[in-house]
């Protein structure tokens, strides 16, 4: 299962369509997403950073405190310019900027990580 966490409904609809051939679950807030991880550990997480409530950074920190969640590959997809090196320690494998990314690149990387 791919878990997608973004508080913008428009973006969730976009992911639903783009990743329609994958098993995905959509979340608008980090609390519900973390609770869901108790029941099923996702194979990949697409995470926005500027979220309401706990931010993406809080979710990343929280996940690091659980051994079973610490190694899940995470793609950060955000409109904020972020440095890859500062996020690597949280298990972030890729950073996509919402303003400049290409959907085919995102799709290709998702396929690559799920097949790895």
């Amino acid at each position: 299962m791919i878990m997608i966490i973004d508080d913008d409904k428009g973006w969730l609809d976009y992911y639903r369509n783009l990743l329609k051939n994958f098993d995905i679950e959509l979340f608008r807030d980090g609390v519900a997403a973390i609770q869901r991880m108790d029941k099923e550990v996702p194979k990949l997480i697409l995470l926005d950073i500027l979220l309401t409530g706990p931010t993406g950074f809080s979710i990343l920190s929280e996940m690091q405190s659980y051994p079973e969640l610490a190694n899940i590959p995470i793609f950060v997809v955000s409109s904020v310019d972020l440095s890859a090196t500062s996020l690597q320690k949280y298990g972030v494998k890729e950073i996509f900027n919402k303003s400049t990314m290409l959907p085919q690149n995102l799709l290709a990387r998702v396929r690559e990580y799920l097949n790895a």
Partner: peptide, 25 residues
């Protein structure tokens, strides 16, 4: 920020049309 969000979403949606073959989609 509020106005940037729909602009970047519109860009993504427009780009994703290239990947789609289903006319309905």
């Amino acid at each position: 920020h509020e106005l940037k969000a729909p602009l970047s979403l519109m860009r993504q949606l427009a780009l994703s049309i290239e990947l789609e073959q289903d006319k309905e989609k």
